[in-house]
Design a protein around this nucleic acid. Structure first.
Length: 242
DNA sequence: GTGCATGTTACGAG
DNA sequence: ACTCGTAACATGCA
């Protein structure tokens, strides 16, 4: 279910529980749920694909992985891996990974890399990219410590919109194109998020899983060796820098 | 039944 | 110590 925008969208829905106290917590996952009972949900934050529920004395980090799903005051037939029940409804996590964080969030997370954060810092990303100059851009776009919140859809769409071939070597991409790519990542993440808010789904693709790109050019699909994920790109429109 | 999908982590080999 | 490749973990839909 998730890329960064999906998690932000989920946070919006969960804010209905902010300020409420947990009546019951549980699930089959390894999360120690006992301490949550009676605690007040102080706030909700996100870091890319991490959903952070803030309580006194600790936070719960929820990650949806590839198959995870969270329903608000609705249930599926299968067991919940992590849930919270409040007086005004419940949060039901399926196949989600929930753990308790005891350190201060500031010590764990750097929001300068979060593509959906106000603190997102383009100049800092450029520095990180310089440190990975010999790598290909497709790999690094999915590196959560560089482009926090980017998933396979945003990766493919941002590269297409910036006109960069996924297998370009970072160090060979002209600085102006790097800037353009960083901008397109943020822009598309916002399109993704806004469409979710309006319609609940995201299907605005110019190249991802397309046969022909938005400009009419043929789309090539490749399976990445390491990650086995699929990349979609237009040879015609996306320049290969090597 | 088969294949595939918005993801990450653990571990062994090199 | 670091990087690479592979397996592992789940679900739901066509």
């Amino acid at each position: 279910m998730p890329e960064g925008p999906s998690i932000l969208f989920l946070k919006d829905q969960l804010l209905a529980f902010k300020g409420n106290s947990v009546q019951k917590a549980g699930g089959y996952g390894p999360m120690p749920t006992r301490w949550l009972k009676g605690k007040t949900l102080k706030d909700i934050d996100t870091w890319g694909k991490h959903l952070l529920l803030l309580f006194d004395g600790g936070a719960v980090r929820i990650h949806l992985g590839l198959f995870g799903d969270v329903l608000i005051s609705e249930r599926k037939k299968v067991n919940r891996s992590f849930y919270l029940e409040f007086a005004n409804g419940e949060m039901n996590g399926y196949v989600v990974n929930a753990i308790k964080l005891t350190k201060q969030l500031k010590e764990i997370y750097d929001w300068r890399t979060d593509i959906l954060s106000k603190q997102f810092d383009k100049a800092y990303i450029r520095i990180l990219l310089q440190q990975k100059a010999v790598k290909t851009i497709d790999d690094v776009l999915m590196d959560q410590n560089v482009f926090t919140g980017v998933g396979n859809k945003i990766r493919n769409e941002a590269l297409y919109r910036a006109g960069i071939h996924p297998q370009s070597i970072i160090g060979k991409i002209p600085p102006a194109k790097i800037t353009s790519l960083i901008n397109e990542v943020v822009k598309y993440a916002k399109i993704f998020y806004n469409q979710l808010k309006r319609t609940g789904v995201n299907d605005k693709f110019q190249v991802y899983q397309k046969e022909y790109a938005a400009d009419g050019s043929a789309v090539t699909m490749k399976v990445l060796k390491k990650s086995k994920r699929k990349i979609f790109f237009s040879e015609h429109r996306q320049k290969l820098y090597v």
